[in-house]
Amino acid sequence: MSRIVVLDYGSGNLRSAERALRRVGADVVVTADRQAALEADGLVVPGVGAFAACMAGLSAVDGPGIIGRRLAGGRPVLGICVGMQVLFDLGVEWGEATEGCGQWPGTVERLKADVLPHMGWNTVRVPAASTLFAGLDADTRFYFVHSFAVRRWELEPSPVIAPPLVTWSHHGEDFVAAVENGALSATQFHPEKSGDAGAVLLHNWLRDTVG
């Protein structure tokens, strides 16, 4: 059984993530303990609310360092919602720019849509090689609740490194809905609130990434 740490840095949704992971067979601990987070088979970084507040909380428990050290050793990390957003270079909310963890280039910005927040169930466009979405139909819907997102993928392709697999969704405009990049995976939507579809995705992450 995979031992998963849900990183507790003062953000919400911790218990929802814990329950969803237990549902698919993981042994889950919710903690801010640095050593436990480093040693776990998989680390989940949840997040709700403002980018700046999440980064402040994450930095207080050395979250960026923990994420960086895990990835340097090829150890799996899954970001969820704002926990995905903080993996990028920069978040801009209400005129305030906040540095993120810098694992991917790009900026989290307010969506250009008539209705915000984007709240409810939406489909996604998944790349053919995805393992995170394996077994899910093209019209599968996931639960989103957000007003900000990554609107452009800015990582230049490399001739020697396999490119990340980027999944997109649409609300007013296209935005990044998920990324699969070796040991680092992330979703803008909430798999823990997405019912059976979310359970399949978490099971795939445990099976194919965590092992």
Score class of each variant (00 low, 15 high):
Ala72Met: 07
Val86Met: 00
Gly79Asp: 00
Glu93Ser: 12
Pro127Glu: 14
Glu93Leu: 04
Ile80Gln: 12
Gly198Trp: 00
Thr167Ala: 14
Leu111Thr: 02
Ala177Val: 07
Trp121Asp: 03
Leu78Tyr: 00
Met119Glu: 09
Arg110Cys: 10
Asp137Lys: 14
Arg152Trp: 06
Glu96Pro: 07
Gln103Ser: 11
Lys112Ile: 12
Leu71Met: 13
Leu201Asn: 04
Ala199Gln: 10
Leu155Trp: 00
Lys112Leu: 11
Thr107Pro: 06
Thr140Ile: 04
Leu87His: 09
Thr98Tyr: 01
Leu87Cys: 08
Arg110Lys: 15
Val82Gln: 00
Val166Lys: 03
Trp94His: 15
Val126Ala: 08
Asp137Phe: 04
Trp205His: 06
His170Thr: 14
Met119His: 11
Cys101Pro: 02
Glu99Val: 08
Cys81Gly: 11
Gly172Glu: 09
Gly135Ser: 11
Leu78Cys: 13
Gln85Asp: 04
Glu156Thr: 07
Leu201Cys: 07
Asp114Gly: 14
Glu192Gly: 01
Ser185Asn: 15
Val77Leu: 10
Ala138His: 09
Met84Ile: 06
Asp196Cys: 08
Pro76Lys: 07
Val150Trp: 03
Phe175Thr: 01
Gly195Val: 03
Asp137Tyr: 04
Val150Glu: 05
Val77Thr: 07
Pro105Ser: 14
Arg75Leu: 15
Leu201Thr: 05
Gly95Lys: 13
His170Phe: 13
Arg125Gly: 05
Pro105Ile: 10
Pro76Phe: 02
Ala138Gly: 10
Leu87Asp: 01
Glu109Cys: 12
Arg125Tyr: 08
Pro163Leu: 10
Ala134Cys: 11
Gly195Met: 08
Gly172Tyr: 00
Pro159Phe: 08
Gly195Ser: 10
Glu173His: 10
Gly83Thr: 03
Gln103Asp: 00
Glu192Ala: 09
Phe144His: 09
Gly83Met: 04
Val160Met: 07
Phe144Tyr: 00
Ala186Asp: 01
Val160Glu: 13
Asp139Gly: 08
Leu90Asn: 04
Leu87Met: 14
Pro157Val: 02
Gly83Tyr: 02
Leu206Glu: 02
Ala162His: 08
Trp168Val: 09
Leu136Pro: 03
Ala128His: 12
Pro127Asp: 07
Ser169Glu: 05
Pro164Asp: 05
Pro105Thr: 12
Ala199Asn: 04
Val82Ala: 10
Ala134Gln: 11
Cys81Met: 08
Gly83Ser: 11
Arg125Thr: 14
Val124Ser: 03
Gly120Cys: 10
Arg110Ala: 13
Ala72Gln: 15
Ala183Cys: 04
Val126Asn: 01
Val160Phe: 10
Asp114Tyr: 06
Trp94Asn: 14
Leu132Arg: 05
Ala197Tyr: 01
Glu93Tyr: 11
Leu87Asn: 02
Leu116Ala: 04
Trp94Arg: 15
Ala97Phe: 09
Thr167Asp: 01
Gly120Lys: 13
Thr98Pro: 06
Ala162Thr: 15
Leu116Trp: 07
Val145Ile: 15
Phe142Ala: 13
His170Arg: 14
Pro157Ala: 15
Asn181Tyr: 14
Ala72Ile: 11
Leu132Gln: 02
Asp174Cys: 03
Leu201Met: 13
Gly195Glu: 06
Asn181Gly: 09
Pro191Arg: 02
Ala183Leu: 06
Gln85Met: 02
Phe144Lys: 05
Ala149Tyr: 02
Glu93Lys: 12
Ser185Thr: 15
Gly172Asp: 13
Gly79Gln: 11
Val150Phe: 00
